[in-house]
Every structure is written in C-alpha cells, then in structure tokens.
C-alpha cells in the first residue's frame, strides 16, 4: 500500500470525488476510536451521491491545518458542519464550511471484515452524545461496567 502525505491525499480525494468514484484508503490514528481504528480501511463516497448530515463520518480539510481528516458531523447549520472525532473529549474541529468537505464514509473494513457499528441509525445517538461531550465518559463507564455491549466495545479495542 502506498503511503501518502496529507497534501497528496487531499489532492487525490478531490480528483476521485470529482469523478464520482469511491476512494479507499487506510485510516491512521485513534481520534475516531472505537468506531474507526488505526489501520481500518475506509471507503469514501462523493457528496453528490451521499448527503452529509448529522452522524455521518466525513472526510474533510481541517480548518487552518490543511490536513486530510476523517471525523463525525455532530451538528450542522446551513452550509456549515460541526465536526468532531469520536474519541475527542470536548475539543472539536470547529464549524467547517461545506466547501471543505470531501466525501462521506460509506464503509469501514477491519481485517477484511465490514464494520457497520457507527454508520447506521445509531450514528444520530453517537453524534448527540459526542456533541454534548458524553460519549467519552460513557465509554469509560462502559469499560468498567460488566454489560454485554460494554464488553463488545472493549472487545473491539
């Protein structure tokens, strides 16, 4: 697999999205854990085919940094999106203009297996919890709690 700089990834993503195709690449970092993990393969579809809305995981150019970032929309107004990593406490990427959005994550693969958690209707709840800064405390609590789905989240770490 080719390793790309953020500049290269932005340029390529722009080209691919403009052609209405899908970009497939390997995610790096833990900012979207547990829903996207370091090494997961992400498939980004163009915004012309899939609407960006609250709860969607999107690829965008981070304001001020000019870096290629993949985080979740936690709120939106006309033309602007509040975007945040699922694993970020209270810090967000700020309000990002629609023009900085590159595409929408339509598929996550981990070890060759599609991961659906975080892309379905639960995305609205994740976005709500993340926006209110409850997602991280909830995850910490679940890790301590012997609930089935708490174990599931731990299991995915």
């Amino acid at each position: 697999m080719v390793s790309l700089s953020p500049t290269a990834l932005i340029a390529i993503a722009g080209d691919v999205m403009q052609r209405g195709a899908i970009l497939r690449f390997q995610a790096r970092g833990a900012s979207m854990s547990p829903f996207v993990k370091d090494g997961d393969i992400l498939c980004i579809a163009p915004l012309t085919k899939h609407r960006a809305g609250t709860g969607r995981i999107v690829a965008f150019i981070a304001p001020g940094k000019q870096s290629f970032t993949v985080h979740r929309i936690v709120a939106h107004t006309r033309g602007h999106y509040l975007i945040k990593g699922d694993n970020h406490g209270s810090s967000s990427d700020g309000w990002v203009p629609a023009a900085s959005l590159l595409g929408v994550v339509r598929r996550i693969e981990r070890n060759g297996v599609p991961i659906r958690l975080g892309l379905g209707f639960e995305r609205y709840l994740i976005a709500l919890l993340s926006r209110r800064n409850w997602l991280l405390p909830l995850r910490r609590w679940l890790k301590k709690c012997p609930l089935y789905w708490g174990k599931r989240i731990d299991h995915e770490r």
């Binding site: 080719v2 790309l4 290269a8 390529i12 080209d15 691919v16 052609r19 209405g20 195709a21 899908i22 970009l23 497939r24 498939c43 579809a45 339509r106 598929r107």
Partner: peptide
C-alpha cells in the same frame, strides 16, 4: 500516483 476509480463499494 495512479488511482483506479471504482463506482461501487
């Protein structure tokens, strides 16, 4: 860089 385009997942 050469990027193959794909229409569907």
């Amino acid at each position: 860089l050469i990027i193959p385009l794909v229409a569907g997942i």
